[in-house]
């Protein structure tokens, strides 16, 4: 018996409303795919399953292709119609495998895929078939993390899709209370930070809250923090806002170190270091060793810069820097 039958189905008979099997990100731009389909047609028929006995179909794999077909105004679409006897668990595996063997799944896709398959099997079974379904081996610990992220509000998975939240940061968030999760997701929605910076922000807010006996939400809702967050549609200021937010949180988490760094930066500024001379402060001021570097391209330049460096020894700014 064949598992599929190839049919051209009217678009009106194929529904994407039931997105149980959808792995790809919701709302991703499908205009490039539409352009390709307009030029070359549909290379791979979408995979659908029949809803009960009616002539209505649910998409298993091919949500984007269906959307593109609608955009292009097609009336029919070529489908692989799964035989009625194929179990939902098999359809779920097909939905994941069809995506995973075309490209590396993104973080949001991984989470949705794990969430989908976990309806039909336990973590250990899922780990066992991961190579065949995900196109990569996933251990049960990692799958457990993916599932805990899957339990976060849907907004979190959307941020995984847009790259505004990393798997590592999302995993950290899963350990927090609901209020804290929402507050942090709000922050990440307004920013576009690297994974390490996301982790930093979660860690600092959590630690400030624990140290000060307040909630993570209270830290996140602080007026100073809200003030630096750009509106959702202001994409331009995101990088700067991220840096400002990190600066605020750093000064709350490490107030003395932050003050020392700022004071040292002020002292260094008063030195008005000439071009070609660089002063390096000890990391976190733990060591007492400062270093100065001069760069030069000729003997004359070396002599000139060495002399300028020597003149710094009498500078009040240097004294205040070293008498910390």
């Amino acid at each position: 018996m064949q598992a599929f039958k190839i049919s051209d189905l009217p678009l009106s008979a194929v529904s994407a409303a039931d997105n149980e099997f959808q792995i790809s990100g919701v709302g991703d731009d499908s205009s490039a795919l539409a352009a390709s389909m307009a030029a070359s047609g549909l290379c791979i028929p979408i995979l659908v399953t029949r809803q009960g006995s009616a002539e209505a179909y649910t998409v298993v794999s091919g949500f984007k292709r269906l959307e593109a077909a609608r955009t292009l105004g097609w009336e029919t679409i070529s489908c692989r119609v799964a035989h009625d006897t194929i179990a939902k668990s098999c359809l779920a595996k097909m939905a994941v495998a069809e995506n995973a063997f075309q490209r590396q799944l993104g973080p949001g896709e991984l989470v949705r895929a794990a969430g989908l398959l976990s309806k039909y099997m336990d973590i250990n079974e899922l780990a066992g078939i991961s190579q065949a379904v995900f196109n990569t081996g996933l251990n049960s610990g990692y799958l457990k993390s993916l599932l805990s992220i899957h339990d976060l509000p849907a907004h979190a998975v959307h941020l995984l899709d847009t790259g505004q939240l990393s798997i590592k940061a999302a995993k950290l968030i899963t350990a927090l209370e609901n209020d804290a999760v929402h507050a942090l997701l709000d922050i990440f929605s307004a920013l576009n930070l690297s994974a390490s910076k996301q982790t930093e922000i979660i860690t600092w807010t959590k630690e400030i809250a624990a140290r000060d006996g307040v909630t993570v939400k209270e830290v996140c809702m602080g007026a100073d923090i809200r003030q630096v967050l750009p509106s959702a549609d202001n994409l331009k200021d995101r990088a700067q806002a991220g840096n400002r937010l990190r600066g605020i949180l750093f000064s709350k988490r490490y107030p003395h170190l932050d003050a020392a760094k700022k004071a040292a930066a002020d002292s260094v500024r008063t030195l008005k270091l000439p071009k070609g001379i660089r002063l390096t402060l000890p990391e976190s001021f733990e060591s007492s060793v400062y270093s100065a570097t001069i760069s030069f391209t000729s003997v004359q330049e070396f002599a000139k810069r060495a002399e300028a460096l020597g003149q710094l020894s009498g500078h009040e700014g240097l004294k205040s820097l070293l008498d910390r």
């Binding site: 490490y254 003395h256 170190l257 020392a260 990391e283 976190s284 001021f285 733990e286 060591s287 910390r324």
Partner: peptide, 13 residues
């Protein structure tokens, strides 16, 4: 902060 012996220590001041 990370000390010179790679252990975490309170900020020196």
């Amino acid at each position: 902060i990370l000390g010179l012996d790679n252990k975490m220590r309170y900020f020196k001041p």
